[in-house]
């Protein structure tokens, strides 16, 4: 069989394969978008159940990146994607919801929302996406691990093995040390992002 015939056959099969994939994409697109929206709404509700409304904070992201880097959180380890103010019924700012992406040591990324009150108390976090997850990584979603952050006010959380003795110490999820470290880094960067907003913009966008 000549080279040109072989190429033509491969191209024809490839075109059919791509057509099938595109058909699958268009059939599932609306449902995937709906799932994502539901997931984000639920995540906001989880990390800031008392808020009446949310609006995006305006800030210079390069300043925030520099601020985080100066405090030991390099942009290739953790990145703040978005900061949203959580407001009450009379539109006073109650705190912030930080959307943060933290990179796992052996590849993969965890993107999550972290709710933080004006005084720095962490409301909790909700994971939006874990890439390259192995099943055990998903244990960082479990209440047993996530609840350790709730209602805690600290400058930075640290992972400890054994028993947590002082405020801010977190016991890693069993079998998910890397994912636990990634979540702790994300929450700590979010706390710094809240401080950054307070220091540079007085807490109001």
């Amino acid at each position: 069989m000549s080279l040109s015939k072989r190429i033509i056959r491969i191209v024809i099969i490839a075109v059919f394969a791509f057509a099938l994939i595109f058909a699958g994409y268009f059939v599932t697109k609306a449902k995937v978008e709906e799932n994502n929206e539901t997931k984000i709404d639920a995540a906001f509700e989880t990390v800031y159940p008392d808020a009446a409304s949310f609006d995006e904070a305006n800030y210079r992201s390069e300043y925030l990146t520099r601020y985080l880097t100066d405090n030991g959180y390099a942009d290739d380890q953790v990145h703040i994607n978005k900061i949203t103010f959580a407001r009450n019924d009379v539109r006073d700012v109650q705190g912030v919801v930080v959307q943060v992406s933290s990179y796992k040591k052996y590849g993969g990324i965890i993107t999550m929302l972290v709710g933080i009150q004006n005084d720095g108390t962490v409301n909790g976090y909700s994971i939006l996406h874990i890439s390259e997850a192995k099943d055990l990584d998903l244990k960082v979603k479990d209440a047993a691990f996530a609840d350790q952050f709730k209602g805690v006010r600290t400058e930075a959380f640290t992972l400890v093995n054994g028993e947590a003795k002082i405020t801010g110490e977190i016991i890693p999820a069993n079998g998910a040390d890397d994912a636990s470290q990634t979540v702790v880094r994300a929450v700590n960067a979010s706390i710094l992002a809240n401080t950054f907003i307070d220091e540079y913009y007085g807490g109001v966008g």
């Binding site: 394969a17 099938l20 994939i21 699958g24 994409y25 059939v27 599932t28 874990i130 390259e132």
Partner: peptide, 25 residues
């Protein structure tokens, strides 16, 4: 096989997102 895998993944993402996340890459 990549064509059918991609379609299965799209279906999982749309209708079984928990399983999709659990099985990951």
């Amino acid at each position: 096989s990549a064509c059918f895998t991609t379609i299965i993944q799209l279906v999982l993402n749309a209708y079984y997102p928990d399983i999709s996340e659990s099985l990951g890459v």
